[in-house]
Design a protein around this nucleic acid. Structure first.
Lengths: 192, 192
DNA sequence: GTCTATATTCGGATAGAC
DNA sequence: GTCTATCCGAATATAGAC
């Protein structure tokens, strides 16, 4: 009675990439983890593994993007909202079932020099997330240029902190990023 | 007349991991790229691929650490020195022959959940680099706690910016990090 | 220290039945 | 849409000669 075989595969792939990387994730595992029928993979994804990863990136991009959007909507003030988001990410990281776009960073490092297609889609994911931050900043009166720069820096810091958190097995780096945000914000004041 | 087969292998591995990740790097390629004799791999590294990667991490850690040290020594002022280092990293990134510790981030994302040994050695590398920044800050009068926090944040930002730079195929993210540094520094003033 | 040969497992992918 | 069987290449690792 399964209707969403394709979605299941995409979801499972995103998770697996986050765990063991792109190359390290086998089609066999994807089938097992997704519960999808073995024979269905090449029906849904005629171009094989790369296509699955590509769609997993697009899926991750959207999931994270809308998650950021929701979280930021909870507070009017941009600084408070973004800080809360980062702190919340830290909590989720420690509760183990984090899912904060790590597969994108993993894919970039693995495939930046081997698959232009994947690299591009990862680039777009980062762009989309940065833009969510940017939009929030603009809504708080920040100039376009400042908001854009700040938005990308925030995304960059979060990605770096996630890698560090994985290395350290704890989320202190994310919390430190949250602490540093006010300092940057104060210097790029919105023009009232 | 080769004397440093082992070092050649380690070096080549570090480069290859940076390019295609840990899983994506084959022993075959390591032999080819290093110019090492085919039969020598398991003589020098009885425990196989993981051992090679482990030593590549340690090697990378040291190379980058001493590089940071040298660069930071060029200016007395911590902010100026660290900014110069980041800007210099951006230049090297764009000149294509960058080598700034990317393999560590790649390894973390790939093996954090599969090899404790590798994860730990990566953690130590990040620690070593952060400490170089920290030492510089302390020499400029920053308190230990502030210096430590700042040092790790700087390393985190650089790693995030490198991933972003790989995604974007340009080093703007690194330059932006350099721009943001003064804002953070000003808020965590050294106690005179 | 270095070599070749080989064992073994596993990867992604295809063909063709149902 | 899904299945099984199978191909082919590549991977790491081992054994044993030189």
């Amino acid at each position: 009675m399964r209707k969403n075989t394709k979605d299941d595969i995409i979801r499972a792939t995103a998770l697996l990439i986050q765990e063991k990387g792109y190359v390290g994730t086998g089609l066999k595992e994807i089938i097992e983890q997704s519960g999808a029928p073995r024979g269905s993979i090449y029906y849904h994804f005629p171009k094989g593994k790369e296509q699955i990863a590509l769609e997993a990136v697009i899926w991750t991009k959207e999931v994270v993007r809308s998650f950021i959007q929701e979280e930021l909507a909870k507070h009017d003030d941009a600084l408070i909202a973004i800080q809360a988001f980062v702190l919340d990410s830290a909590d989720r990281f420690e509760e183990n079932r984090y899912f904060v776009g790590v597969p994108i960073s993993a894919l970039i490092l693995e495939t930046a020099s081997t698959s232009e297609k994947l690299r591009r889609s990862c680039e777009k994911a980062f762009e989309a997330w940065s833009q969510e931050f940017m939009k929030k900043l603009q809504a708080n009166g920040y100039e376009t240029a400042a908001a854009e720069k700040l938005g990308t820096v925030i995304n960059t810091m979060i990605q770096g902190a996630l890698v560090t958190a994985l290395a350290n097995k704890h989320a202190a780096s994310l919390r430190t990023v949250a602490e540093m945000l006010p300092f940057i914000f104060k210097q790029l004041l919105p023009q009232k």
